[in-house]
Write a protein that binds this DNA or RNA. Structure first.
Lengths: 230, 230
DNA sequence: TCGACAAAACTTGTATGCTAGATTCGCCGG
DNA sequence: CCGGCGAATCTAGCATACAAGTTTTGTCGA
């Protein structure tokens, strides 16, 4: 999912546990603040506490859970700092990837972007926000591939998923699709035309769309934040 | 060091082990390819294998060691991909930080940069590459602070340390100090004058100095790399 | 009824032992 | 002397048990 893990002949239990919990958390089926116990998860998976402990340790390294010694382990709440940090990292990485993509973009790459945009517009027509969410990931992955820095997408995805789970709280995701697709089109144009600065600027604008959304959710779902809106 | 850790009343053994091994590895006292055993480390610290296991897990998440199930655990060798990735991340983060720093730089910040440059020149005069190495970290940290993104330095340091241990193999570090300090001066000038683009460009140039160094080390110390120079 | 104190029921951290797989070294046969 | 095969000896993964600390709950007293 995230790091090495490579190929394991027999899927180790810790991998299964990490994958499961990761999905549960990023999909907001496990809400921030929810307490999870090593013992419970161990029983649920029919294993001992040790693999669960290691899984917790990894998830803690991803900042998804918070292990408080002797007290409890809970799904991490959002914080001003974590969101700000995540946004900064994404902005920096995406900006760099976009510039590189604009410099490297071949004709075939341009077609690939067009094809993705077409799919996105199809999802919009069908009002399928789930499908769009996946296509959104694909789009950003494609940009990283064009830029020749596929590993950059790992970082973007990790940061994106941290915030995307927040956006699950928003009811009407359909409304934003047109604007996001328009952003994507502008980004694709800039990349295709080889204009690095324009690509970076379009990417920054695209990312900034999130800010208002997050601010709104922060007000409506303060329980999932660990600090006041200030 | 890296993540939460926060404040622990009683320093847990796993923290001590992680800290120790982290320093040993980044200081190249534990060379890439060196096999380390859970049992040995446990005995060395007078604890059981469990804390060591967790420590190994964390170090593996940092890509510092490679644990191969049932086989052995060893200090990670360098790879083309890991270096490339590290360089990309650093470049992206530093570029973003430099731009922000240029936009935010106050008069006091300018003086702080000057003071740091003076210390660096002093270290150069004394031919103290160790002192300079530390000042180098301080300089980059200051930039992040000025930019208002102190967390960015955590990322930069993590990536920097991964590569810096490589540079420990280089004998003559003094030769490069003048150029690096000149780079720093150019970066400081750009920040002070509020020229974001110039700051980013100067930063990119500064980072590019590493490429030749790494290429040279790769040839001279191929044993520490897991792939051919190609 | 309410408050304080104590004990029980949680939590995670650590230790020990066992198991499965991989390597390595030594022995035996040629 | 050399090659191949097997057992001893490594490795890490997992299970179980205990320890230390925190929270909750229940009970007793005013």
């Amino acid at each position: 999912m995230n790091d090495s893990a490579a190929s394991q002949a027999r899927p180790r239990s810790v991998e299964r546990i990490v994958d499961f919990l990761y999905r549960e958390i990023t999909a907001m089926r496990l809400l921030p603040g929810t307490r999870i116990s090593e013992t419970d998860v161990a029983a649920q998976f029919g294993v001992s506490r040790q693999p669960v402990r290691e899984a917790f340790s990894r998830l803690a390294a991803m900042d998804l859970i918070l292990v408080r010694p002797k007290k409890a382990t809970e799904v991490r709440r959002f914080s001003t700092l974590s969101i700000e940090k995540s946004r900064f990292v994404r902005s920096a990485i995406e900006s760099a990837a976009l510039r590189k993509a604009a410099e490297n973009c071949s004709e075939a790459d341009g077609y690939a972007l067009d094809a993705q945009l077409a799919l996105q517009r199809k999802a919009q027509a069908e009002k399928s926000s789930d499908a769009f969410a996946e296509l959104d990931y694909d789009f950003h992955r494609t940009i990283c591939d064009i830029a020749g820095v596929p590993y950059a997408f790992d970082i973007i995805r990790a940061e994106k998923e941290k915030v995307d789970r927040l956006c699950m709280l928003q009811i009407s995701k359909e409304d934003r699709m047109p604007q996001l697709i328009e952003d994507h089109a502008r980004i694709a144009d800039a990349i295709r035309s080889g204009d690095a600065e324009a690509a970076a600027a379009a990417g920054a604008l695209h990312l900034s769309r999130l800010d208002e959304t997050i601010a709104a959710i922060r007000k409506s779902s303060a329980a999932y934040f660990e600090d006041d809106p200030t």
